[in-house]
Amino acid sequence: MGRVFVIVLAMWIALASPAAAQAGRIPSSRFEGWTSAIIAADWRDGRGRPIEAFDNARRDLVKGFLGAGFPRATMVDYSLRPDAPTPATPQIVLDGLYDAATRGSAGCLLYFTSHGVPTAMVFGDAPRMTPDMMVNIVRRACGARPTVVIVSACYSGIFVNTLSAPNRMVLTAASRERTSFGCGADETYPWFDGCVIEALPSATDFLALAAGARACVARKEQEHAVALPSEPQLFVGSEMQLRLPTLRFNRPTG
């Protein structure tokens, strides 16, 4: 019996090795089966003129989260820009999100980048997305799964209370009373999105990502002498407090 146990243990260790994971015998990421959606929900500056910052962020956030271990097979990304190579309507975005959620049932990452007003977030040319609308989308797509919702927009703190639940983490670019920055024609990304992109390569998990992004935003605002900082908000539900440290991002090894 002892000899059989040793053989079985040796086989398990071999299958659990990085080489075995790369060969596809076991999942190579803790995010196998997670649905992820990254949505650029606006394409204009404050005067309605087209800008590239939101779409730049969508493109490079996709790269960053793929590198962190989120599978492409259950990831969708959309631009609501009318002249995008593959233009999407708000309904196409929601249908695509719900379809992806049927293919990846282990967890959810939803990331929105857009403009915001004190009561809602711009969602293309559809009616603006209120907190009640957002929570209904999250409930339908993600249910009781572990869920991370990131909202990059002015006044995005309005979503925190409504989205708060034990199975969720919510990270926003600003408090409910504050604007965020970087949505102009001369910016590569909105500042918050740029800070998430900057923090992703070294972050070990979502908690480290939130800390890195918030520190980066504070640094940028100090460098630009911003009078009223955006105050990014973070909520972590009781279930997620235990789960998030175990959901570690993929990182290159020596």
Rank of each mutant, 00 (worst) to 15 (best):
M1K: 14
M1V: 11
G2E: 11
F5E: 12
V6A: 13
A10E: 09
W12S: 11
I13Q: 15
A14I: 10
L15M: 15
P18V: 07
A21E: 06
Q22G: 10
A23K: 11
R25T: 14
I26D: 09
I26C: 09
I26R: 14
S28V: 05
S28K: 15
S29L: 05
F31I: 04
I38N: 00
I38Y: 00
A41G: 06
A41Q: 00
W43Q: 09
D45R: 01
G46T: 12
G46I: 04
R49F: 14
E52Y: 02
R58Q: 15
R59W: 04
L61E: 02
V62H: 04
T74A: 04
V76E: 00
L80M: 13
L80I: 10
A84F: 14
A84P: 05
T86Q: 07
P87S: 12
L97S: 07
A106R: 08
H115T: 02
V117R: 14
V117I: 12
V117D: 15
V117N: 10
P127G: 11
M129R: 03
I137M: 11
A144Y: 08
P146Y: 01
A153W: 00
A153K: 01
S156Y: 01
I158C: 01
I158N: 00
F159Y: 11
V160C: 12
V160L: 11
A165D: 12
V170L: 04
T172R: 03
R176A: 14
E177W: 02
T179V: 10
T179D: 09
C183Y: 00
G184A: 13
A185E: 13
E187I: 07
D193I: 03
D193V: 02
A199R: 05
P201W: 03
T204E: 11
D205H: 13
F206P: 07
A208W: 00
A208F: 05
A210I: 12
A213R: 05
C216Y: 06
C216K: 12
C216T: 09
A218L: 04
A218V: 06
E221F: 04
E221K: 10
Q222S: 15
Q222D: 14
E223C: 09
E223M: 14
H224P: 04
A225Q: 13
A225L: 08
S230Y: 01
F235S: 07
F235L: 12
G237E: 08
M240K: 03
Q241S: 11
Q241A: 08
L247E: 01
R248I: 06
N250T: 08
R251M: 03
